[in-house]
Design a protein around this nucleic acid. Structure first.
Length: 869
RNA sequence: GCCCGGGUGGUGGAAUGGUAGACACCAGGGACUUAAAAUCCCUUGGCUGCAAAGCCGUGCGGGUUCGAGUCCCGCCCCGGGCACCA
C-alpha cells in the first residue's frame, strides 16, 4: 500500500495517500449515535477565484489536526466543509465577463476542493454543502419564513447606504469610514424599500447568553460593545406651546436633570419642523440641508472639531424644576439612537459642554466630586465634570449620591407620568436585503389588501397553513399599499429566474425587477404556482401579484450552515431532529477574529429563533470558539498582492510538501498570535521530517535496521522521553498549543537519532503522535514499518505515568535568589539532606562560607534557596 | 478619547511565581567529500577574562516576595476593535 520511494519523496507520497483516503472514503462520518461525538467546524469559506491562501491553510490545518486527533481518541468525528457561494465578488465577475454566476461558482468551488485535497485535510467531502444549491437555500428561505411568521421581519422605506459602484445598498456595518468595506467605494444615503430583521428584539438575550459560551474574552467584549446596552430613563419634556405635545429624551443621567440648560434634537427628528418658529425657519432649513448632505466620513472627521447647530426658536419645560429651556437642532444628536433627542447638561457632559461654550449657553453644575477640596455645596468645580459625586443645586435632592438620586428622580418623575426607567441598545435592526441577482430570493409576493384577504382565505380553505405573521407586513409601492404574502413552505425553494443580464439596474432595484414575466404574475397562494401577468388569469382564485425583487445578503446562508452538515441531504427538514440532538453544535469553531461581531451575532440571532420554535435544543450555536491569528507577509505587513509579499501555498507544496507546510504553519508560534511568514524557517521543519524518514527508512528504502522488533530495545531515557512526549503532545493538542507539541516531537526525534537502537513499538507510537500534523509521511512510514491497517484508525497511544517518574532529580541551589549550583539528588530527598549537599558543593560553598543562614526555602524537586546574612 | 491584545537573543518563539532564551531559523567553526550539496559534531544574549569564573540582561520607572518575564502601581511604544451612543 505504501509507495516504494527510497528517499522522502513527498511529491510521490502525498498524492498517493490523498488518493488512498479518497478511494477508501477514510473520513466518512457515520451517524452512529451510540458513540461519543466530536464536531469540529471551520468558518464557512467563500470560494473566491483566487483560491486558497495561507490563512485558509492555517485554519484548516488546525481543525484537521483536531479532527484526526479526536478520531484517534475513538470519537465519532464530524468534520465537514462547504461553500458560502452567493455574493458580490462572483456576481461582479459574472457581470464583467458575461458569464453566469453559477458557472463561475462551480469553477471556483472545483479549485477550492482540489486545493483542499492537496493540503491533505480530512473532511468528509460526502457532506459538502453549497448555499447556492436550491436544496440548500430552500431551507434558508424556510428559516426566513419562520422569522417572518414570528413578526421579526418587516419592510421599511428608509435612507440606506447606497453604493453606486457596487450598485447595491449596504448594511451600516458594511460601511467603514464612509466607504464600502468591500472595494472601498464611496457611498451615499438614499431612501429605498428594504427588508429589515428585528434583531433588537433579541438584544437582551444576545447579551446575557454570552456567559454561556467559551469564547475569547475579547470577542465577547466586542459583541457586548456592539449590542451596547445602557440603562437610563426616558423623560418627557413639555413643550412651551402645548399643541406641540412633548419631547421625549433618553438619558443615562436622570440625576442631572436640574442641570439641563438646553435640549437638542437630531436634524431628522419628526418634531424639527413643528418646533421651528417662523423667525428661525430659514436658518433651520439651511442647517438641516447641510446636515443631510454630510457623509458619514465628514461627520466622523467633524466629530473631533467644532460642534454645529441652530436654535429652533422654541422652548421646553424642565419637568424637574419648571425651567424654560431652549430647543436646539444639532447633528451631534443622531436620530438612530435613543429617541433622537437629548436633555443637554453641559456641566456634566463633554459634548454638551463644547456646544454650550460655542453658543454661549449657561452651564449649571449639579454634581460635585465627593472629595473636592472646596466641597461646600456651592458647586464650583472645574467643568465639565463627569465623575462620581453628590448632587447640588437640585431642590429636594441636593446632597444625595448621584446613583441614589438617579433612582429617586426617575421614580419621582415616573410617578408624575413624566418618565420611566428604560434600557437602550446601540444595536440596530438588521438591514436584510440587497438589490442584486446572486442571492436567495425572498419567498414573498406583494398583493393589494383585498387580494391578501382573498388569497389567505383561499389557502386556508385549501388546507394550506401559510406562515403568516400576526400583523401583516405592508409597504407602499408606487403610492399603493401592498401586503406581503408568503409563499407556502411546501412550494420552496423559490428559484432564481434565468436572466440574460446581471447588470445592476442603477435605479436601486435588483436585476430581477427587469424580468417582467417572473415579477408580475398571476399567483395561487395555496400552491405557490405563478403565471405571467401578461397572460390570461389561469383560474378564479389566482390573484395579481408582484414578486419581491430584493435578494438576501450573503449572511443568510452562513447563519445556519453548521446545522445542515448534520444532515445535508434531508429534503424534509433542515436536519433530522435526532441528528440535531446527537451532534448538538460544534465542539469547537475555528475562524478569524474578523467575524467577531457580524457573522457570529447574526448566526446567534437565527439560532435563538430556531431555539424558540423548537428546532434546535440549545440556546447558543457555538459553545467554544477559537480565532487563529493571521499570517503576515515576510515584511510583517498584511499579505497583499499590491505589496508583493504573498506566499503561495501551491508553491510551498511543490517545493517542500504539504506535510511540511502544515507543520511549519503550526510551528510558527501560538495559533492565536498574529505572526509573520518566514520562508527560511520552513527548512527547519522540513529537515525534521527528513530526519524522521531516515530514522525509519534505510538507504535502499528498506526499514532502518536500528528499529528492532524487540520491545525492550529502548534505552530507559528514550522510553521515558517517549512517554513524556505522548503526554505533552496530547495535552498540547487539547490545549491548542501546537507549536510546543511540535518542539517536543523534535526533541524526541533528536534523541531517537542519538540512540543506537529503538523498538518498533516506540517508533510506531511516535508516528501516531506525528500523524495528525503530518498525516502523509506518518501513513507512509507506518505502512513501511508494518503497522496494522491505516495509522488513522489506530487508537492514540497511552502514556504510562510510572514511566515519567525518574529516580534522580535536579535541584537548583540559589543563594539569596541567585543560582549558584545544580545538584542531582534522589527523588524525595528532604531539605536537610539537600542543604548539606549544597553547603558542600564546590559551586555554592564559597557563597556560604562565613555567612549566617537566615532562612532556607526548599521546594522539593525544584529549588533550594539559602538566604544568608 | 474608550475597550482589548502584545513588547523576551540577529529572527520566529519557550518558560504551573522557582535554572530566562526550550525547539527552530540565521551566522560562524569543524568532520565526511576530488569538490559541492546533503548529513553529522561544536559555538552562538551582552560585557569582562587566556581560563576558571563573574557581572549585566525579558519596553521604562517603582513595589510585593526568599525568589518576578510571570503578581501590583505608574508610564512609553506597537497591533486590533469601537467612537458625537446621550
Amino acid at each position: 500500500m505504501a509507495t516504494h520511494c527510497k528517499d522522502y519523496d513527498f511529491l510521490e507520497i502525498e498524492p498517493h495517500w490523498q488518493t488512498f483516503w479518497d478511494t477508501n472514503r477514510s473520513f466518512r462520518t457515520t451517524d452512529d449515535t451510540s458513540r461519543p461525538k466530536y464536531y469540529v467546524l471551520d468558518m464557512f469559506p467563500y470560494p473566491s477565484g483566487a483560491g486558497l491562501h495561507l490563512g485558509h491553510c492555517e485554519n484548516y490545518a488546525i481543525t484537521d489536526i483536531l479532527a484526526r486527533f479526536q478520531r484517534a481518541q475513538g470519537k465519532n468525528v464530524l468534520y465537514p466543509i462547504g461553500w458560502d457561494a452567493f455574493g458580490l465578488p462572483t456576481e461582479n465577475y459574472a457581470v464583467k465577463t458575461g458569464r453566469h454566476p453559477r458557472e463561475v461558482t462551480v469553477e471556483n468551488v472545483a479549485t477550492f476542493r482540489r486545493q483542499l485535497k492537496a493540503i491533505g485535510v480530512s473532511y468528509d467531502f460526502g457532506r459538502e454543502i453549497d448555499t447556492t444549491d436550491p436544496r440548500y437555500f430552500r431551507w434558508t428561505q424556510w428559516i426566513w419564513l419562520q422569522l417572518f411568521k414570528k413578526g421579526l421581519a418587516y419592510v421599511e422605506e428608509k435612507p440606506v447606504w447606497w453604493c453606486p459602484a457596487l450598485g447595491t445598498v449596504l448594511a451600516n456595518e458594511e460601511v467603514i469610514d464612509g466607504v464600502s468595506e468591500v472595494g472601498k467605494h464611496p457611498v451615499e444615503r438614499r431612501p429605498l424599500r428594504q427588508w429589515v430583521l428585528r434583531i433588537t428584539a433579541y438584544a437582551e438575550r444576545l447579551l446575557a447568553d454570552l456567559k454561556l459560551v467559551d469564547w475569547p474574552d475579547s470577542t465577547k467584549r466586542m459583541q457586548e460593545a456592539w449590542i451596547g446596552r445602557s440603562e437610563g430613563a426616558e423623560l418627557l419634556f413639555k413643550l412651551e406651546h402645548p399643541h406641540l405635545g412633548e419631547l421625549k429624551v433618553f438619558t443615562t443621567r436622570p440625576d442631572t436633570v436640574f442641570g439641563v440648560t438646553f435640549m437638542v434634537i437630531a436634524p431628522e427628528h419628526p418634531l424639527a419642523d413643528a418646533l421651528t418658529t417662523p423667525a428661525q425657519r430659514e436658518a433651520v432649513a439651511a442647517y438641516r440641508k447641510q446636515a443631510s448632505a454630510k457623509s458619514d466620513l465628514e461627520r466622523t472627521d467633524l466629530a473631533k472639531g467644532e460642534k454645529t447647530g441652530v436654535w429652533s426658536g422654541s422652548f421646553a419645560i424642565n419637568p424637574a424644576n419648571g425651567n424654560r429651556i431652549p430647543v436646539w437642532i444639532a447633528d451631534y444628536v443622531i436620530m438612530g439612537y435613543g429617541t433622537g433627542a437629548i436633555m443637554a447638561v453641559p456641566a456634566h457632559d463633554e459634548r454638551d459642554y463644547a456646544f454650550a461654550q460655542k453658543f454661549n449657553i449657561p452651564v449649571v453644575q449639579v454634581i460635585e466630586p465627593d472629595h473636592s477640596e472646596g466641597r461646600n455645596g456651592s458647586g464650583n468645580s472645574k467643568l465639565p465634570y463627569t465623575g462620581d459625586g453628590c448632587l447640588v443645586h437640585s431642590e429636594g435632592y441636593s446632597g444625595l449620591p448621584w446613583e441614589e438620586a438617579k433612582k429617586k428622580i426617575t421614580a419621582d418623575l415616573a410617578a408624575q407620568g413624566r418618565g420611566k426607567a428604560t434600557v437602550n441598545y446601540k444595536l440596530r435592526d438588521w438591514l436584510f436585503s440587497r438589490q442584486r441577482y446572486w442571492g436567495e430570493p425572498f419567498p414573498i409576493v406583494w398583493v393589494n389588501p383585498e387580494d391578501y384577504a382573498a388569497a389567505t382565505a383561499h389557502a386556508a380553505s385549501a388546507g394550506v397553513s401559510l406562515p403568516l405573521p400576526a400583523d401583516a407586513v405592508t409597504c407602499v409601492i408606487d403610492g399603493r399599499t401592498r401586503y406581503a404574502l408568503p409563499v407556502p413552505e411546501h412550494s420552496l425553494p423559490l428559484q432564481l429566474p434565468e436572466v440574460t443580464s446581471y447588470q445592476p439596474t442603477g435605479t436601486g432595484e435588483s436585476p430581477l425587477a427587469a424580468i417582467t414575466d417572473w415579477v408580475d404574475i398571476w399567483y395561487d397562494a395555496a400552491t405557490g404556482h405563478a403565471a405571467p401577468a401578461s397572460g390570461a388569469k389561469p383560474a378564479d382564485h389566482y390573484v395579481l401579484a408582484r414578486r419581491e425583487t430584493n435578494t438576501m445578503p450573503q449572511w443568510a446562508g452562513s447563519c445556519w450552515y453548521y446545522l445542515r452538515y448534520l444532515d445535508p441531504k434531508n429534503d424534509d427538514a433542515i436536519a433530522a431532529p435526532g441528528l440535531i440532538k446527537y451532534w448538538a453544535g460544534p465542539d469547537i469553531y475555528v475562524g478569524g477574529a474578523e467575524h467577531a461581531v457580524l457573522h457570529l451575532l447574526y448566526a446567534r440571532f437565527w439560532h435563538k429563533v430556531l431555539f424558540d420554535i423548537g428546532v434546535v435544543p440549545t440556546p447558543e450555536p457555538f459553545a467554544k470558539l477559537f480565532h487563529q491569528g493571521i499570517i503576515l507577509g515576510e515584511d510583517g505587513e498584511k499579505m497583499s498582492k499590491s505589496r508583493g509579499n504573498v506566499a503561495n501555498p501551491d508553491d510551498i507544496i511543490r517545493s517542500h510538501g504539504t506535510d511540511t507546510l502544515r507543520l511549519y504553519l503550526m510551528f510558527l508560534g501560538p495559533l492565536e498570535a498574529m505572526k509573520p511568514w518566514n520562508p527560511s524557517g520552513i527548512e527547519g521543519v522540513h529537515r525534521f521530517l527528513q530526519k524522521v524518514w531516515r530514522e525509519c527508512i534505510g538507504r535502499e528504502g528498506e526499514p532502518n535496521p536500528k528499529v528492532v522488533q524487540d520491545p525492550s530495545a529502548d534505552s530507559a531515557e528514550l522510553l521515558k522521553l517517549l512517554h513524556e512526549t505522548i503526554k505533552k503532545v496530547g495535552d498540547d493538542i487539547e490545549g491548542l498549543r501546537f507549536n510546543t507539541a511540535i518542539s517536543q516531537m523534535m526533541i524526541f526525534v533528536n534523541a531517537l537519532q542519538k540512540s543506537e537502537r529503538a523498538s518498533l513499538a516506540t517508533v510506531l507510537s511516535f508516528l501516531q503522535l506525528l500523524a495528525p500534523f503530518a498525516p502523509h509521511i506518518a501513513e507512509e512510514l507506518w505502512a513501511r514499518l508494518g503497522g496494522d491497517d491505516s495509522i488513522q484508525s489506530t487508537p492514540w497511544p497511552k502514556f504510562d505515568p510510572a514511566k515519567l517518574v525518574a529516580s534522580e532529580q535536579k535541584i537548583i541551589v540559589q543563594v539569596n535568589g541567585k543560582k549558584r549550583a545544580e545538584l542531582s539528588v534522589a527523588v524525595g530527598s528532604n531539605q536537610d539532606l539537600v542543604l548539606q549537599l549544597a553547603q558542600a558543593h564546590a559551586d555554592s560553598a564559597p557563597f556560604l562560607a562565613g555567612k549566617t543562614v537566615k532562612r532556607v526555602v526548599f521546594v522539593p524537586g525544584k529549588i533550594l534557596n539559602i538566604v544568608v546574612e
